[in-house]
Design a binder for these strands. Structure first.
Length: 481
RNA sequence: GGCGGCAUAGCCAAGUGGUAAGGCGACGGUCUGCAAAACCGUUAUUCUCCGGUUCAAAUCCGGAUGCCGCCUCCA
């Protein structure tokens, strides 16, 4: 069975056929570097990272391009407000972006062009549009004429006439049509500018993605992605200007991820409820966010709330513990490799789910099925089942890897969680260990009342004790009350 | 005003014609000095409501209600 991808432009799932067999050209709109990234950026990054991982696991040779918008109104505004060079604003937030993305386990794309590195390509494109009569110059500002492009509105399914009647479009005297958008903005005092045959200035927002995607991937290319909000106007405009310039098709498959709400409310700066990635990471392991997002379909809106995140946190621990148990069951055992039908079945179903427009939520359910199966075999303590555990665990790792999960060690996951928790409670490891030692003594003396008092005391501080064959271990209580 | 989406158990959530995945929680059991973890079992005869099509509908069609997004910078 082949891959099916939901295409925004047709509103349907379509069979995926790349332009060149065996290769996928993928372009995803990156960020404007004027602030730290929030968990909405994280969703987009995680969704396309997962798509990228899956395409590679299917054997495609993927060329993945993700841009940085490092010249733009918001950057200039911030530069003026903080009295810092605009270039420096960009550098700062590109660094911040990488810190966040690396923490989240987002793989680096093949190319990460910055808009300012390709001004020349943009100028060429604007020039072409002027020469072809799709753009006009008003005192150094160059606008794209939407009336000159027959298919304008095709992607966002907004006929021109209807948008015209929309009351929310700014009336700009300079534009022939209120929907015309800037390809090039004339040079202004205190703003960066580049020389161009049609007048010095700086590029409009949409032109960079047209220039850079075409440069790195050619036309048409396979998949263009981004957040749902980019459908209009950004992608509509990219498409219009590129197709007007080349006369050919720009993109075959448009893929857009849904938005993140916080406690059922739209996350936005004006409401003041944006959550930065770095603030999230102070509380939880990065894979908690990944598991949470991938448990929802990428096109649906997702509601971020403490209950759901806590659920994902617990579930993530479960997956790590299973891997640990599988490893222990194999330790020091000799075994011949053996195929295991159940594991093969899970891999097959996993790929089938991912082939169906990247249904990660369904795909994840097979990881949990494998987890249950592995735990069951480990519990049975049947030596002859060890090869099956190995086979199941191999499948387990493959599924998790493809989704970018279980990339850390249990030790690291636990120690991060423990130190966060202890710091919050104002406790330290020595306190816990002393209490555990006291309890061990009490248990030796069969003073179970005292032992239970210690257990209760620690439980009240969110610390859970486990008496295992290897001795008493402790964990942070993950369950919510 | 225009365009689009969603409504599935206590909570989260997948499922677009063939008889309801998975996670979290709860309850019973195994295990344990007691617990925890893990496993086993139970937890939606039913998918917002009302009609229709069909041998068959959570899934298709029509209508109602409720929630949400976009049309403006935005992942």
């Amino acid at each position: 069975m082949g891959l099916k991808v939901y295409n925004t432009i047709s509103g349907k799932k379509e069979d995926f056929t790349p332009v060149t067999e065996g290769q996928v050209k993928l372009y995803v709109c990156g960020v404007t570097v004027y602030d730290h990234c929030h968990i909405g950026h994280a969703r987009s990054a995680i969704v396309f990272d997962t798509i990228y991982r899956y395409l590679r696991s299917k054997g495609y040779d993927v060329t993945y391009v993700r841009n940085f918008t490092d010249i733009d109104d918001k950057i200039i505004r911030r530069s003026h407000a903080e009295n810092i060079a605009w270039q420096e604003i960009g550098q700062t937030y590109i660094r911040s972006f990488y810190e966040d993305m690396d923490a989240l386990g987002i793989l680096r794309p093949n190319h990460e062009p910055r808009a300012t590195e390709h001004i020349g390509d943009m100028i060429t494109l604007v020039d072409t549009l002027l020469k072809k009569g799709h753009a006009y110059n008003v005192g150094g500002d160059v606008y794209f004429s939407v009336d000159s492009f027959r298919n304008y509105g095709q992607l966002s399914k907004r006929p021109l006439e209807e948008m015209m009647s929309g009351a929310r479009v700014d009336i700009d005297e300079k534009k022939k049509n209120p929907l015309d958008f800037a390809l090039w903005k004339a040079s202004k005092e205190g703003e960066p500018s580049w020389d161009a045959p049609f007048g010095a200035g700086r590029p409009g927002w949409h032109i960079e993605c047209s220039a850079m995607s075409t440069l790195f991937l050619g036309n048409p290319f396979d998949i263009h992605g981004g957040g749902k909000d980019l459908v209009f106007p950004h992608h509509e405009n990219e498409k219009a200007q590129t197709e007007a310039a080349t006369g050919g098709k720009f993109v075959n498959y448009w893929v857009h991820n849904g938005f993140v709400n916080i406690d059922r409310e739209k996350m936005s700066k004006s409401i003041g409820n944006t959550l930065l990635i770095r603030d999230f990471l102070k509380e939880y392991h990065p894979e908690v966010l990944r598991l949470f997002y991938l448990s929802n379909h990428y096109r649906s809106p997702v509601d971020y709330n403490s209950q759901s995140i806590e659920d994902s946190n617990i579930a993530l621990y479960r997956l790590y513990y299973t891997r640990e148990r599988a490893a222990e069951a194999q330790k020091g055992k000799m075994f011949a490799s053996q195929s295991y039908e159940m594991a093969d079945e899970m891999v097959r179903k996993f790929n089938e789910a991912m082939d169906d427009d990247f249904n990660t939520a369904l795909a994840i359910s097979y990881i949990f099925d494998l987890s249950k199966d592995i735990n069951r075999m480990v519990d049975e303590k049947d030596e002859s089942a060890v090869p099956l555990i190995v086979a199941a665990e191999t499948a387990y790792e493959y599924l998790a890897d493809t989704l970018g999960l279980l990339q850390d060690t249990l030790e690291s996951l636990e120690s991060q969680g423990k130190s966060r928790h202890l710091a919050r409670m104002g406790l330290d490891v020595a306190f816990v260990e002393n209490a555990i030692n006291d309890r061990i003594e009490a248990r030796k003396a069969k003073d179970f009342q005292k032992a239970d008092q210690i257990r209760t005391m620690l439980a009240e501080k969110g610390i859970m004790l486990l008496d295992t064959p290897k001795g008493t271990q402790w964990r942070i209580k993950t369950s919510v009350s």
